[in-house]
């Protein structure tokens, strides 16, 4: 994560995992990637980081969380998701406490690279 920090002109969508595993999943989209993905997701052109973009990014985090919980728990029944939320800003650092296992995966989309981060309490 250190090479990603600080996140610049980025929007992060995240959702918490609670239950037999505690953690969170976050997706960090540079603004231009977030705009392209939201436009594609909603089927309309979006050219600023507005409420539509925040909702789309939060919903993507929520869907990723839904998938992860079924992978970590039989049919996902022992893990629950918190509410999705977003963080956006010109420049910020995103960090969790110590004592977590963390994996960060880069993905390449036509509009650019974005990162998905999973953190689980040990």
């Amino acid at each position: 994560m250190d090479e990603l920090q600080p996140l610049k002109e980025t929007i992060t969508g995240m959702v918490g995992l609670a239950g037999i595993h505690k953690g969170l999943i976050a997706v960090h989209f540079p603004y231009e990637v977030a705009l392209a993905i939201t436009s594609s997701f909603l089927g309309m052109e979006v050219d600023e980081v507005n409420e539509d973009v925040r909702d789309a990014v939060g919903e993507i985090a929520n869907m990723l969380g839904g998938n992860v919980k079924t992978l970590l728990s039989d049919r996902g029944k022992d893990i629950e998701l918190s509410l999705p939320s977003t963080i956006s800003g010109d420049e910020y650092n995103f960090s969790s406490q110590e004592q977590v296992d963390q994996v960060i995966l880069p993905f390449k989309a036509p509009a650019g690279v974005f990162h998905v981060e999973l953190e689980l309490e040990r």
Partner: peptide, 23 residues
């Protein structure tokens, strides 16, 4: 009954956090 996830901290200038619009 509620369960907790793990805390995360964000540091920056003019950061904006937002819940989803139905909350």
């Amino acid at each position: 009954n509620v369960e907790l996830a793990i805390p995360t901290t964000v540091v920056g200038n003019s950061i904006r956090t937002s819940g989803f619009s139905g909350a």
